[in-house]
Design a protein around this nucleic acid. Structure first.
Lengths: 230, 230
DNA sequence: AAAAATCGGTAGCTATAGCTACCTAACGTG
DNA sequence: CACGTTAGGTAGCTATAGCTACCGATTTTT
């Protein structure tokens, strides 16, 4: 296997803690298929049969959800080393739940999922690590989604903001901190409109609960913030 | 190991396709801890250190999310054979993201997650199956959550309903079908108020798109329903 | 079979948050 | 450094959906 490819693969979370030499051996068992895609072409099409666990080797691709009427929403953008289709690999579903679209020229490695829990009887250390990595990846994904559901299920704008800020406060352990998201991204994450988000933040500032400038925030009244979270 | 316990375990998705005799052998490796809990006591407390992958052997327990202010929301109710804490098992997080509360007298088996990707070098068939089951469980969970996020991210009431009905239509392949959820549950799933949901359903009926009585629905105008889904 | 609880539809009121539009501050690029 | 672009705050208007209240129908309990 090409040394360059191995280099990218060892940086990918799916091969975390697997040495290049181990990886080289494992690839023989895993039966990977490598394809290249031109800019603005489909790597995977929503609804079509699943083609395996994808690892982006080079280029940039967008995961997009397409509605029946043809409107397209970009879910995420992925780069070299990133995975896609990891949720479907071991589920009973056998169709792509979203499309993957090459933003530039891309090369992609597909792994047949059945090979991961594979026949490969000589259980090298790398093999065990691979499974462990898959378990970690899926758990983390599920937890992230779970957290997102929790935020989306919150009714009020004030409540969403308060809970989000309290969580950030807990992480930073300081009254003043910098948010990891820009306004637009935060609005997206909370699934509210940016303008309404800004308005509510303004109100909270007027009430003396917080101060902010762009992504930096200072909590002035923790008790009131807590009350806002209900 | 008690034959009764083995009987429940083989019915649990985590030990799917593992024979009782295989299971009996595996349990020696897995180092399970069994505890019993009185009615109305905590099996796990949100925020406290993770105690392992839980399998409910008997009784009924509720997964509840508790907010800082002390308000409690029941997420799901689980019964014998059901799992809990499967998302945290392989993630870097080491604290319960929700509480588990015994609704009646419960007995619970906890498995240390590190044993699942275990040291157990004699790779019996059952062991491989166990890992496969974990992967399937986590994938399915992630997909479910993903679907939920998609619904919650939808803005309009009409749009939510239309997409939901179209999905049900696709499943049933008939114009007339019975919804798997009651109004209350559907409102919960879509994260809208029941009254607003009923109102919009009424509007859609007035416009001749659908007919309905309780949980049975008939689609009268598929094209309009599609348009409602944007 | 009567009583109680659940389920579901309707109506009116109102708070909320989305949308458009606009403007200023920061960033980045040739 | 001038230009375009992105990020973010503000304002006014309005549609939407939440809430309360109520009532009839259905199911469950006793």
């Amino acid at each position: 296997m090409d040394a360059n490819i191995v280099k990218i693969l060892v940086s990918s979370p799916i091969f975390h803690d697997i040495s290049p030499s181990q990886l080289d051996i494992m690839l023989d068992c895993l039966n990977p298929k490598i394809n290249t895609y031109n800019k603005n072409s489909y790597i995977a099409v929503q609804g079509e049969p699943y083609t395996g666990l994808g690892i982006l080797l080079s280029g940039e691709a967008a995961i997009i959800k397409e509605s029946a009427s043809g409107s397209r929403v970009i879910m995420t953008v992925i780069g070299p080393g990133d995975l896609f289709g990891e949720m479907i690999a071991f589920s009973p579903r056998k169709h792509w739940p979203a499309s993957v679209f090459a933003q530039g020229t891309c090369s992609v490695m597909f792994l047949p999922p059945e090979k991961i829990i594979g026949e490969c009887t000589h259980v090298c250390g790398g093999y065990k690590q691979l499974i462990k990595n898959m378990l970690v990846l899926l758990s983390t994904k599920a937890l992230m989604l779970n957290q997102r559901v929790e935020y989306l299920a919150i009714k009020g704008m004030r409540e969403k903001i308060s809970i989000y800020l309290l969580e950030q406060y807990k992480i930073n352990q300081k009254n003043t901190f910098v948010l990891p998201l820009k306004r637009n991204e935060l609005a997206d994450f909370l699934s509210v409109s940016r303008t309404a988000l800004s308005r509510e933040l303004g109100r909270m500032r007027d009430e003396g609960i917080i101060e902010f400038y762009r992504t930096s925030v200072k909590i002035n009244n923790l008790a009131m913030l807590r009350r806002g979270a209900e």
